[in-house]
């Protein structure tokens, strides 16, 4: 679940605005961390890996409304700081292709970057523990664990947004019974809740309405979580199989792409040099 498939105007401004602020801050940090020449050398790699992820995300598995992500693989190839850059680039290009809202690019960047970073960490840790010979099962486990965590983050974001049941807005509805533009759910041209339905203007109904809204929100969130976890888990297995196969292949053919070398130990000067020579 690399990103939220929610259109513009559904999530509250404070949420997507915060997403943009945090994403920009992370991008600035990543840009600063990537100023070394070795990181600049990897700039074209950011381009090609991001392109791989975009191509994967554009191929939908229609029956379960899921698309491949390859984010764990991307994280493994790019490392932490460049993963953040890649996550942003992927979301901007996808938004430009109409895939995902423009206002939620910030939130989507955070979700994708989390997936890449967590995938990178789990894969690196697993490969160091078990070695590249077990790269495929390590990659499969890392993918499933990563997608489970980011799916939970996605459900958490939707719960935090409060859009499932709490937001009351008018929709300008057409009454299908009599083809008038009055509200089909209440008398007269009254407000129809975008998620909860109905305007409860009378004070005596306020308490009842609040209770109903809470109930509707809990119900909506439960339904949303059920759908996402049910369909998503099928997608996790598919994603894990593909990622495991690719990582297993890379581990056989070119393992240096997957296992990043540890930082070399500091070279201590020889005692003679240290003390100014013999």
């Amino acid at each position: 679940m690399t990103h939220i498939h929610v259109p513009d105007g559904v999530l509250p401004v404070w949420l997507w605005g915060s997403g943009w602020v945090v994403a920009v801050a992370l991008l600035l940090i990543a840009d600063r961390a990537s100023r070394r020449v070795t990181a600049r050398r990897r700039l074209p790699l950011v381009g090609v890996v991001s392109a791989l992820v975009i191509v994967a995300m554009s191929s939908e598995v229609v029956p379960i409304a899921y698309h491949m992500n390859l984010t764990v693989l991307a994280g493994a190839l790019l490392g932490p700081s460049l993963s953040i850059v890649s996550a942003f680039v992927v979301q901007v290009v996808l938004a430009a292709l109409g895939h995902g809202g423009v206002t939620i690019v910030g939130l989507n960047t955070l979700l994708t970057a989390s997936e890449m970073l967590l995938g990178w960490a789990l894969l690196q840790g697993g490969l160091r523990l078990l070695g590249t010979k077990r790269a495929a099962p390590v990659a499969a486990a890392a993918t499933v664990a990563t997608l489970a965590v980011t799916t939970t983050m996605l459900v958490g974001l939707i719960a935090a947004s409060g859009t499932l049941g709490a937001t009351e807005r008018e929709t300008g509805a057409l009454d299908p019974e009599n083809l008038t533009f009055a509200s089909p759910f209440s008398e007269g041209a009254l407000r129809i809740g975008l998620f909860s339905g109905g305007e409860h203007g009378q004070e005596e109904e306020a308490e009842h309405a609040a209770g109903e809204a809470e109930h509707a929100e809990a119900l909506g969130l439960a339904r949303f979580a059920t759908v996402v976890y049910t369909l998503g888990s099928i997608g996790w297995v598919l994603e894990a199989l593909v990622t495991a196969a690719i990582v297993g292949y890379l581990a056989r053919v070119r393992p240096s792409l997957l296992v990043q070398p540890r930082a070399p130990a500091a070279v201590l000067p020889a005692p003679a040099e240290h003390h100014g020579g013999a």
């Binding site: 498939h5 929610v6 105007g9 229609v62 409304a65 995902g100 975008l194 339905g197 909506g220 949303f224």
Partner: peptide, 27 residues
């Protein structure tokens, strides 16, 4: 293309067909 995912979100979260149609229409 985004209508597929918006419809899924609408089906899971919108209380009625009109609200769901609005979500898909926005996307």
């Amino acid at each position: 293309y985004p209508a597929v995912f918006a419809a899924l979100f609408a089906w899971a979260s919108a209380p009625d067909a009109l609200s769901g149609a609005l979500i898909v229409s926005k996307a």
